[in-house]
């Protein structure tokens, strides 16, 4: 049991960070506003969770310009994808063990 818990990623133990990663697993890139709508969170809240994921190199930020406006897009890194899969497997195991 301890083994399984070890694979639970603390960083994903939060609704918004889990949501950001889930969305980026199935979309190549997403911009800030789309994530905001999808997860129904405030700007500041989303920004801080994005920062946390970026700091761990789980997601990458790409800035570009549309005219004069900045357009910020996010995508999951290879590491982020791997960690997320590990986390999912751990969740699955815990549930299967207890049911």
């Amino acid at each position: 049991m301890k083994d399984i818990i070890k694979n639970i990623n603390k960083l994903f133990d939060h609704r918004i960070r889990l949501g950001i990663m889930s969305a980026l697993m199935v979309n190549d890139t997403l911009d800030f506003n789309t994530l905001k709508e999808l997860l129904d969170v405030t700007d500041g809240n989303l920004a801080s969770h994005i920062k946390a994921l970026e700091k761990s190199d789980y997601i990458k930020i790409r800035k570009s310009f549309i005219g004069k406006k900045t357009n910020t897009k996010y995508n999951a890194t290879h590491l982020g994808t791997l960690e997320f899969k590990k986390h999912l497997t751990a969740l699955e195991r815990i549930i299967n063990n207890k049911l």
């Binding site: 949501g19 969305a23 199935v26 699955e92």
Partner: peptide, 16 residues
């Protein structure tokens, strides 16, 4: 944990 799983599924569906 169960709620997490259903949340993941829901977001994956809604975002695609």
């Amino acid at each position: 944990y169960l709620k997490d799983i259903s949340e993941i599924k829901d977001i994956m569906n809604r975002s695609t």
